[in-house]
Design a protein around this nucleic acid. Sequence first.
DNA 1: GTGCGGATGAACT
DNA 2: GTTCATCCGCACT
Length: 201
Amino acid sequence: MTKLPFSYYQDQDVNALAIDLLGKYLFTAIDGQVTGGMIVETEAYNGIEDKASHAYGGRFTNRTQTMYETGGLSYVYLCYGIHHLFNVVTAPKGIPHAVLIRGLEPVEGLEIMLVRRGMPLLKRNLTAGPGALAKALGIDRNLNSKDLLGEEIWIEDRGVHIPDQQLIACPRVGVAYAEEDALLPWRYYIKGNKFVSKPNS
DNA sequence: GTGCGGATGAACT
DNA sequence: GTTCATCCGCACT
């Protein structure tokens, strides 16, 4: 188990990173309880040029300042007043790129994740979808702006490689407000994986 | 200070 | 397919 190094997150091509993060492993350790799994679905948010991004047009606020930090930090925010969404901040400091993690195949701490989700049995929706996986991993705004090389939340390379034939690119979910940028094929997922949030689209 | 609406999910019909 | 929970970020006054 090797944590992805600081340099990994400095890449300025946020789409390349969104693709490369498929097959990597995201974990949290909260109150000594380790939970996590393999990333199977991501979306790229391309800084100030992307109308779907919180940082579009260079918008800099208390919330978005994390996105401008150096790659290798977490960006967690509350969506719809209910769901926490987890992103990986990428690119060097000053460039607000981020990758939203939308789907996770559960691997570690299954029982703990089931309790957090209030579910009796493993079903696909335990960790399919950004709000669902954040809840399963115990991610909330306390984990915003954390170092992904730290001890609370981190990402590992376990040597999994996703072949091109299993990689699907399509438009992002829930960004209709982004006008023409809503059509960009910047959502990526592993074809056929059970823990992709919406298999067809 | 006020008002609008969102990078969703689950429970409905 | 439709509804709605639930709260803060953000723009504007």
